[in-house]
């Protein structure tokens, strides 16, 4: 099976953008619920959502109120991380790779695009927000399911999976970063609301049920970190994503560099100890880890998307 480097690149980015749209929708959804659960006065601020996604430079000096932040995450076309922008970018990538994807993929991605164009702006307020975020999540999952159940297990599938998993691993670390609380600021730390925060984060990863069954009913910081980082059976755990990336890198040619970086990340993940790290340490680890994932993305790109010409 032949796969053009350029096509591989576009499939990979399609997957990354779809995953980013879905994960941002999940995180926003969970966070909105969380804020409603916490008594007025002790609720964390909306700024966290912007910080967690490294969006401050684009967000600028606007006030971090609910309206501004949610508009930024959902509808702002200038923000490359906004749901609307991710969906548009995913569509552009599908538009130029339609020939290697099952036809329905284009139809569904295009419908999702038309939906977000029509609804994103109107869904910033609380009234319509829930429905919009749920639709985005559901539709992204439908497209994922379609890809998983129709794509041949060849290069197209491989690069799509790489894109999904790399993005998902990155987002999982960001979710944990919310809980790490370094961003919350000490004045906001409050033992009583802590379990609420961790539970809502698990919810954003669709992992609450599994957590209860495998770890137990009590939601507690260290075991959540442990679970989201290293539970090998959880499809949204960092470990699961890295294992999946490895699986797809192995059959590729010229994979030495990428595998080396991946193994390094896997090692640092397994060595990390949440018990001794403390919240500060956790946050610093996450920062470093995200850099490693970035390096891996860069290596994938220079190895397979921009191969040297003779």
């Amino acid at each position: 099976m032949i796969m053009l480097s350029r096509v591989a690149e576009r499939l990979y980015w399609m997957a990354r953008y779809l995953e980013r749209a879905e994960d941002t929708a999940r995180l926003t959804q969970a966070y909105t619920h969380l804020i409603m659960d916490i008594p007025a006065g002790s609720e964390p601020g909306w700024d966290i959502l912007v910080r967690i996604l490294d969006g401050e430079p684009i967000f600028g000096d606007k006030a971090f109120n609910e309206q501004n932040v949610l508009n930024f995450l959902i509808a702002d076309e200038e923000n490359p991380g906004s749901i609307r922008h991710c969906i548009r970018a995913a569509r552009e990538n599908v538009r130029t790779t339609r020939d290697v994807l099952p036809e329905e993929v284009w139809e569904h991605v295009n419908e999702l695009f038309l939906y977000s164009q029509a609804r994103a702006r109107k869904s910033v307020g609380r009234r319509n927000r829930h429905q919009f975020l749920e639709q985005v999540t559901t539709r992204c999952q439908m497209i994922n399911g379609l890809l998983m159940s129709t794509l041949c297990r060849d290069h197209a599938y491989r690069f799509i999976k790489l894109g999904h998993l790399l993005e998902r691993a990155d987002m999982a670390t960001r979710v944990i970063d919310v809980g790490a609380g370094a961003l919350l600021g000490t004045e906001r730390l409050n033992k009583a609301v802590d379990p609420l925060i961790w539970a809502s984060l698990l919810q954003s990863l669709s992992a609450m049920g599994t957590y209860r069954r495998t770890v137990g009913p009590l939601v507690e910081a260290n075991s959540v970190v442990e679970f989201v980082f290293r539970e090998r059976t959880l499809p949204r755990s960092v470990r699961f994503c890295l294992d999946g990336i490895r699986e797809e890198l192995v059959p590729l040619k010229n994979n030495t560099d990428a595998l080396k970086i991946l193994e390094r990340s896997r090692r640092s993940l397994s060595r990390f100890n949440p018990e001794t790290a403390g919240r500060e340490g956790l946050h610093r680890f996450i920062d470093r880890f995200q850099l490693e994932l970035n390096t891996l993305g860069g290596t994938i790109s220079s190895t397979w998307f921009m191969p040297p010409r003779p």
Partner: peptide
């Protein structure tokens, strides 16, 4: 394959090639 000019090159053997992940 749907290709753009930048996906193709002519090598010293005067044959046409495309850049693929393999």
């Amino acid at each position: 394959e749907l290709v753009e000019g930048s996906d193709l090159f002519v090598d010293e053997d005067d044959c046409l090639y495309m850049l693929t992940v393999d």
